[in-house]
Deep mutational scan, measured.
Amino acid sequence: MQIFVKTLTGKTITLEVEPSDTIENVKAKIQDKEGIPPDQQRLIFNGKQLEDGRTLSDYNIQKDSTLHLVLR
């Protein structure tokens, strides 16, 4: 499925993911596309910070959902 990740600069990254993917996996995909190390990434969905060990389906993230990427 496709999800979107919006950065603070207003750029939107499109990712191909599975609901069973962990947040860690998603961060690795963002690193592949953008070169941002996962330990600098914080992903936010519906105002909640997403934890590495959880999956997209844990957070009820579905296709065409938009996550927000904050760098630390």
Rank of each mutant, 00 (worst) to 15 (best):
E24R: 09
G53P: 11
I13N: 03
V17S: 14
I61V: 13
I44Y: 11
L50H: 00
L69H: 01
G10L: 10
I44R: 07
D64W: 04
I3W: 00
L69T: 01
L69Y: 02
Q41N: 07
E51T: 02
I30F: 06
S65E: 05
N46V: 13
L69F: 02
F45N: 05
Q49A: 09
E34Q: 07
V26S: 02
K33A: 14
L15S: 01
L67N: 01
K48P: 02
G35R: 10
D52I: 06
L8P: 10
F4T: 13
Y59S: 04
K6I: 10
G35K: 09
Y59Q: 03
D21V: 09
S65K: 02
I61S: 01
Q49H: 15
E16I: 12
D52H: 10
L71W: 03
R42Y: 15
T9R: 02
K11H: 14
P37G: 14
I3N: 00
G35F: 09
I44D: 12
V5M: 05
R72L: 04
I61H: 00
T55A: 08
R42K: 12
L67R: 01
T66L: 04
Q41D: 01
E34V: 10
G10D: 08
R42L: 15
Q31W: 09
I3A: 01
I13G: 02
Q31M: 06
Q62R: 04
T12R: 03
Q62I: 03
S20V: 15
L15A: 02
D58M: 02
G35W: 07
R72S: 14
K29Q: 03
V17R: 01
V5D: 00
I30L: 08
N46M: 09
K6P: 01
D58F: 08
G10K: 04
F4P: 02
I44G: 14
G53I: 07
L67G: 01
K29M: 05
K27E: 02
L8T: 11
N46G: 07
P19W: 07
T7W: 04
F4Y: 15
A28L: 09
T7L: 07
R72M: 14
T9D: 11
H68R: 02
H68Y: 07
R54L: 14
I13V: 13
L15N: 00
Q2N: 14
K48E: 12
V5K: 00
L71P: 03
L67H: 01
A28P: 03
T7N: 09
T66D: 04
T66S: 05
K48Q: 09
L15M: 11
V17K: 00
E18F: 11
T7Q: 02
D32F: 06
F4H: 07
E18Q: 11
Q2A: 10
R54Q: 12
I30A: 03
N25H: 02
A28R: 07
K6Q: 06
G10V: 07
L71Y: 15
L69A: 02
Y59I: 05
Q2Y: 06
T9E: 10
K63V: 08
H68Q: 11
T14H: 06
G10N: 08
D64N: 11
K29I: 12
L43Q: 00
E51Y: 06
R54G: 10
I23P: 05
S20K: 15
L67Q: 01
T7V: 12
L71R: 11
V5T: 02
Q31N: 14
Y59F: 09
T9W: 02
Q62F: 06
T9N: 06
G53W: 14
D32N: 09
P37K: 15
K33M: 11
Y59P: 00
E18S: 15
I30H: 00
Q40I: 09
L56K: 00
Y59E: 07
I3F: 01
E16T: 12
I36N: 07
M1P: 02
L56W: 01
L8E: 06
I13L: 09
T66G: 10
K27D: 00
K48S: 08
G53R: 09
V26D: 00
V17D: 01
F4I: 14
D39P: 04
S57V: 11
E24G: 07
N25W: 09
T14E: 07
E24N: 15
S57E: 10
T22H: 15
Q49E: 13
Q41R: 02
T22Y: 11
G53Y: 05
Q49F: 06
R54A: 05
P37W: 06
K33P: 04
E18W: 13
P38L: 04
D52Y: 02
I30S: 03
R72V: 13
I30G: 01
L69R: 01
R54I: 12
V17N: 13
K63R: 09
F4S: 05
S20M: 11
D39E: 13
F45Q: 06
I36G: 03
N46L: 14
I3Y: 00
G53K: 14
N60T: 15
K6E: 09
Q41Y: 02
P19G: 12
L71T: 13
S20A: 12
P37S: 14
